[in-house]
Simulated assay, not measured.
Amino acid sequence: MDADTVRVGVDLGQGGCRALATHGPRTGRADTAGFWGADPDTLVVEAVRAALADLGPRPDVPVHVGVGMTGLNGQPPAVDRIRAGLRDLVRHGTLRVADDSVTAYLGALGPVPGAVVAAGTGVVVLALGATVARADGWGAALGDRGSGHWIGRAAIRLALRDHDHGRPGPLLDAVTAAFGPVEALPARWRDQPPTPEHVAGLTTTVADLARAGHDGARRIWDRAGRLLAESVTAAVRRSGPVGAEVPVAGTGGLFTATDLLLPPFTAALRAGLPQARPVPAAGDPLTGALALSDGRTTPTPLAALTVHVDLAAGVDIAEEVENR
């Protein structure tokens, strides 16, 4: 199939948009601004355009595009504008678009039952058992507990508390360096609030301080790990596990801080969900988006969460029929 088609995967997250195009052994890549950088549909189309350009000349073969998008909050995506933009790039092929929890799952575990927590600027959990269940993914204002944004916001609040108590220190210094004098923060949050990505930018500093022995920073990371485990436990219980063990994988930028996140995450996960078996993620959400572009290995419950259209015909395709 690879010799007769071009496959493109797109991972649109809050912190960036990545695309990978493949044709046989050749690849093309693109990295652009994330969800908050521009119109999401435009970002997806431009990422595909850049990845195809980086791939170089290609024969007149079908182009199959798989997209995982943040900001859908578990709802079916509207794909008309993406489809229209892609039809200016390719003559024929297919487009599959799903919530980024689906592509995170496919990348981390593939087509098997289990649970995946994707934690970067935001966080979402998807569990696949007797049914599919999702937890969190409510966005920065309403949820994303334990995410990069949550860590950054917790650090800001702790720094403001230190300021109130007359306790200067490296955390307060970091917040001032990132956002300006703390006395001006209320007005800034009211008049020009920073994006979740900007707030999550403090995560690296909080990690460095935790490793250096800062008690407050370490407590923030410990709480983040426990919150992520709570969301996994909730999703698995609702999905109805189908085996004696439930593989659980973590993916996203937050899980690169394994020394800080994994101990509290694993301890809380095993306490709340004894049948959980933590496993390393096989791949990232971009890998999952590329798998979605194919569609042949997408389990039916996840395929039902995917909008699939033919780029040439411009009509919806029933995934359930295709996957029988």
Rank of each mutant, 00 (worst) to 15 (best):
G201I: 13
L185K: 05
V248C: 09
E245K: 08
F255L: 08
D284L: 11
E183F: 10
V309S: 06
W221G: 00
G225D: 13
A257E: 15
A217C: 09
G295D: 12
P247E: 03
L228W: 11
A282H: 04
E245R: 12
A234E: 13
V309W: 11
A281L: 04
R296H: 15
T251R: 09
R211E: 15
L305A: 03
E183D: 15
G252C: 05
S293E: 07
V248W: 13
L260P: 00
A291D: 07
G180N: 09
L311C: 04
G240T: 03
D222R: 12
T204R: 15
R223P: 00
A304C: 11
A210G: 08
V279S: 05
H308N: 04
L292K: 01
L261E: 03
T205S: 07
T251L: 04
G295V: 08
P274R: 12
L292F: 05
A244Y: 02
T204E: 14
L261H: 10
G213M: 14
G216E: 02
V246M: 07
S293N: 08
H308I: 05
T258M: 05
T266V: 02
A178T: 10
P241V: 06
S293R: 03
G180H: 10
A249K: 09
F255A: 04
V307C: 07
G240N: 09
L254W: 00
L260D: 01
G213K: 14
W221I: 00
P264I: 11
G180K: 06
A187C: 01
A303P: 03
L286D: 01
G225T: 08
A184H: 05
G295C: 13
A312S: 07
G213I: 11
R218L: 05
D222V: 02
T251F: 09
R211T: 09
V199D: 06
A235M: 12
A174K: 04
D284V: 05
I220F: 10
P299S: 10
V248F: 09
L269M: 01
T297Q: 10
D294Q: 03
V206W: 02
V242W: 14
T298K: 14
W189H: 07
V182Q: 10
G225A: 11
G225Y: 11
L185A: 01
T297N: 05
P247I: 04
A177H: 13
L260F: 07
D259H: 04
A177C: 06
L209T: 01
V182G: 04
A303E: 01
G252S: 05
P181M: 15
A229N: 02
A234C: 07
Q275E: 15
H308G: 02
F255N: 04
R211I: 06
G213P: 08
F179Q: 03
I220Y: 07
V206M: 03
G295Q: 14
P274H: 11
L269C: 03
A289V: 12
L260A: 00
G253V: 01
L286H: 09
A212S: 09
V279T: 13
G283S: 12
P186T: 02
T251Y: 10
L260C: 01
L269A: 00
G250W: 12
P194N: 09
G295F: 13
L254F: 01
L290W: 13
L311T: 02
D191T: 13
P181D: 15
T204I: 14
V175H: 05
P301L: 14
S231R: 15
A187G: 14
A200F: 15
L260R: 00
V279N: 06
V248R: 12
R188V: 04
E245S: 10
